[in-house]
Write a protein that binds this DNA or RNA. Structure first.
Length: 413
DNA sequence: CATAATTGTCATCTA
DNA sequence: ACTAGATGACAATTA
């Protein structure tokens, strides 16, 4: 039984403790059903979602699927029923719940085949935060999400033609190209190199974008509440009620596994997936996640691979004050990135549309202009200042230590 | 498990 | 008054 084969294959991997990415699962699918992974069409294989062409070259008028697409479509149709069965089995596996979310994301999309902004969002974002897609009230999915996002952080993001084939491998490649600084020369979010004008022109200046963070923050209020300096964040309207809102469903299933220990608070109420205030009705801002997803400091590849793990301690550090162990031993190699991710996370929590690097390295004048340009709330301002202060102090400390070592070497040795 | 080294952060001072 | 830099101290983590 192929269904059983797939299920057991995935389950086996999970049992082995391997990170199982969505991509990987799909490949298992493709292998089992003898599909050509590169041209596997999601709309028949998984859900009646539109074809999505993840191609850097977007051809708005190109509606006809490639020949191989049709072929695979037929092939998939033959296996569709069986695959549905597989999915049911797979979704019965707790570790693969995220797949269900992601598929649901596809399904949701399929319901709105013409919502290009949304599919555009999916293209660059869905795999990183399936829950957001899943839970996003598509009816309310204002184009502002994806539009702002695309315009803000991924100016080169290809527009998705919903009638085209979804190319699995190219999709993944593109995704990683987009999110992995190692695979792209484009500093997508590390806008430290950008001119102030460029930064200011970023359409992330709408306070709505910022408010949308509340959906995300909601599930992680302590995230910004735990500012190391203890400054500020308490004033955030986002930090209303710790332990509430979207909670672990987001972090647990979120490919990026924002399972910072800061989120411990929420673990007690994993089912509390609800907004605390009107602004939180926005499940998540594309901007924020996209931003951090693309952050050069986020170990995306690692987190992506472990997205299905749901292990709260597999990702990201904790602030020193926390008693929890921020890192597992296998994460040691990514300590540096994860360290930086702390502030990235905080910024993410408050939907600060700039990279930590930008915040830290921007000249005072430019920084002030930037702050005035974007209408940040108190919490965001405080956080940004903290990030800037910490970032600068970190550099200063490093310099100081270098200097100390140099002096010691020069004088004593 | 204990220890030293490393690193990030905070507090404080100075320019 | 504000910011940046320097530095000591502390805590967390790693080797």
């Amino acid at each position: 039984m192929e269904a059983a084969a797939v299920t057991s294959s995935l389950q086996n991997k999970l049992d082995l403790g391997q990170g199982l990415s969505f991509d990987e699962c799909l490949k298992i699918f493709a292998d089992t059903f003898q599909l050509e992974a590169p041209t596997m069409t999601y709309h028949t294989a998984i859900a009646p979602s539109p074809h999505i062409e993840v191609n850097q070259n977007f051809h708005p008028t190109e509606q006809l699927p490639a020949p191989e697409t049709l072929q695979n479509t037929a092939t998939n149709a033959e296996n569709m029923q069986e695959m549905e069965q597989v999915w049911e089995e797979l979704l019965s596996i707790p570790e693969l719940q995220c797949l269900g979310n992601q598929v649901d994301g596809f399904a949701d999309l399929s319901m709105y085949p013409n919502q290009e902004p949304l599919t555009e969002t999916v293209h660059s974002y869905m795999f990183h935060s399936p829950v957001s897609v899943m839970e996003k009230p598509v009816e309310n999915a204002a184009p502002v999400f994806s539009n702002d996002f695309a315009g803000s952080f991924v100016p080169n993001v290809p527009t998705v033609n919903t009638n085209q084939t979804f190319n699995v491998e190219s999709f993944c490649d593109d995704i990683f190209t987009l999110i992995d600084p190692k695979m792209t020369n484009v500093p997508l979010t590390d806008n430290s190199g950008q001119s102030l004008t460029e930064l200011l022109n970023e359409p992330v200046d709408d306070i709505k974008d910022l408010s949308m963070c509340k959906a995300f923050n909601g599930n992680n209020p302590s995230d910004y509440n735990d500012s190391d300096s203890g400054v500020s964040v308490g004033t955030s309207p986002c930090a209303t009620s710790p332990g509430q809102s979207m909670s672990s469903s987001v972090y647990g299933d979120a490919p990026f596994g924002y399972s910072d220990s800061d989120m411990d608070d929420m673990d007690s109420t994993p089912e509390t997936v609800q907004a605390k205030n009107p602004t939180e009705e926005f499940p998540m801002s594309i901007t924020e996640d996209a931003f951090y997803s693309l952050s050069p400091f986020v170990p995306l590849d690692a987190s992506f691979e472990t997205e299905s793990h749901n292990s709260p301690e597999t990702e990201l550090p904790v602030r020193p004050g926390h008693s929890k162990t921020p890192f597992t031993k296998d994460k040691a190699s990514s300590r540096q990135e994860a360290r930086f991710t702390r502030d990235e996370q905080r910024a993410k929590a408050l939907n600060v549309p700039f990279s930590v690097d930008t915040i830290v390295n921007l000249p005072v004048d430019d920084f002030n202009v930037l702050m005035s340009k974007h209408q940040f709330n108190d919490a965001q301002l405080a956080l940004i200042r903290d990030i800037r202060r910490r970032g600068k102090n970190k550099v200063a400390a490093q310099n100081c230590r270098k200097k100390e070592n140099g002096e010691h070497c020069g004088a004593g040795e």
